[in-house]
């Protein structure tokens, strides 16, 4: 007997969204999968989900340097980076910085 295929595990975009929401309680969170634009070159893979652009606005970044902010995000997403995500372009801002424009 052939069993139907399993439901695909949660998509990476959703995993990224869920983990960042839980860890940073962001005011704004945009997870943009740009894999299609990178298809066919370094790090791209069939099925996409390799290149993401993420914008996070969170009070968790207050008082932290740019490097410290990105390290925080990389650490939250270390499994995703290790498993599949090849490129993660980040915008990390505090609500105050957004208000200042």
């Amino acid at each position: 007997m052939n069993l139907p295929p399993r439901a695909p595990s949660m998509r990476y975009a959703d995993r990224i969204h869920t983990k960042l929401t839980q860890a940073l309680a962001p005011v704004t969170l945009i997870v943009d999968d740009q894999s299609a634009a990178h298809a066919g070159h370094g790090g791209a893979a069939p099925g996409g989900e390799t290149h993401f652009e993420v914008t996070v606005v969170s009070t968790a970044f207050a008082g932290k340097s740019r490097v410290a902010r990105q390290r925080l995000v990389y650490d939250i997403l270390k499994d995703e980076l290790a498993e599949r995500v090849h490129a993660l372009s980040l915008k990390t801002l505090t609500p105050e910085e957004v208000a200042q424009g």
Binding site: V67, Y74, S89
Partner: peptide
């Protein structure tokens, strides 16, 4: 302690990757 390339160092100090340099 940074999972991606490129990485820019200035005078022995890590400055950042592409996003940070561009910003």
């Amino acid at each position: 302690n940074w999972p991606t390339i490129p990485q820019l160092y200035v005078k022995g100090e890590f400055l950042g990757g592409c996003d940070i340099v561009r910003d």
